[in-house]
């Protein structure tokens, strides 16, 4: 998975490179619009367009049947039943494209979440990091931590019952600063060192496609004191759109669907 992510990250890096000069919102809108159009095109290619068109028309006929026979309850119910049955057929019909599209969508979702989901460590705002141990956490000292462009806010908390160690870090500067891979050096216990990237929210010892930038936990000397996993929570980034604060997912969904609506009209794809 690590290598798959490496390839995907590189591909997305290359694809998104030209957008690097744009404010994140515009980059996100662009990516959303393009992905919306592409997904609709994929849907058009792999779905039974003729079948969908026929079914859509039949369902329209059934809705109109309800309107035309509003004074006859039995007919209304019969048309409503037919409509629901055809709706089920429609869902079955789009199942195949949904399954096929799930793969690119999953990749895209993970990448966008990683790239646009958080603003990194905000200036002078602390973020909490937690490590989970399999066994009792080793004793840790505050002086063992170092954060490039930032620092540690004492104390380091150890919760023996949960087998967790938590601490807070901050970045220097007034604006949000991305703390990238290798920025954070945290000795875990007395003999282990952990390297990681902190551009994502939450991490695990094994990265997944949905969390492509999960830090790789480098265990220099595996032992009982090695953390099993760890997580942190950077604040979500908000985007200002039409005076409202939108999450990256909302921006993506709205703009990808808006682009898709236009694409379905222009490309005459039945969805």
């Amino acid at each position: 998975m690590k290598y798959v992510n490496l390839v995907l990250n590189t591909l997305f890096d290359v694809f998104l490179y030209p957008l690097g000069w744009l404010p994140p919102l515009w980059g996100l809108i662009f990516v959303s619009a393009v992905s919306g159009i592409l997904m609709v095109m994929i849907f058009g290619k792999i779905s039974d367009q003729e079948g969908i068109a026929v079914l859509r028309k039949r369902m329209t006929g059934e809705v109109l049947g309800i309107l035309l026979n509003a004074g006859t309850p039995a007919t209304v119910i019969s048309f409503a039943a037919r409509l629901i049955a055809d709706n089920t057929r429609y869902l079955v019909m789009i199942l195949k494209p949904m399954v096929v599209m799930a793969v690119p969508f999953m990749l895209l979702w993970g990448q966008l979440d990683a790239r646009y989901g958080s603003a990194g460590l905000p200036g002078n705002q602390p973020v909490t990091i937690t490590f989970q141990y399999a066994e009792e956490p080793p004793p840790t000292e505050e002086n063992d931590f170092s954060v490039r462009n930032g620092g540690l806010i004492p104390p380091v908390m150890t919760v023996d019952t949960l087998k967790q160690v938590s601490f807070r870090i901050f970045s220097h500067g007034s604006r949000g600063v991305e703390i990238l891979a290798n920025d954070l050096r945290i000795p875990v216990g007395s003999i282990h060192e952990w390297n990681g990237s902190l551009v994502s929210r939450g991490f695990d010892t094994s990265p997944s496609l949905l969390s492509p930038f999960h830090p790789t936990v480098t265990v220099l000397d595996a032992g009982t004191e090695t953390p099993d996993s760890g997580w942190y929570s950077f604040p979500d980034v908000d985007y200002r759109v039409m005076g409202w604060r939108w999450s990256w997912a909302a921006v993506f969904l709205v703009f990808s669907m808006a682009a898709a609506v236009v694409a379905t009209g222009v490309l005459k794809i039945k969805v």
Binding site: G36, V40, I42, M59, A70, G71, P73, I94, P97, S256
Partner: peptide, 30 residues
């Protein structure tokens, strides 16, 4: 799962909602 199938799910939901609401309205107004 993407706009194409997303529409599918959304419209499918709308269809059921539509069928139920129109049928109910029709029965209530009958």
């Amino acid at each position: 799962v993407g706009p194409g199938a997303g529409f599918g799910i959304v419209t499918s939901f709308m269809v059921i909602l539509n069928a139920v609401l129109v049928s109910l309205l029709s029965l209530l107004l009958w």
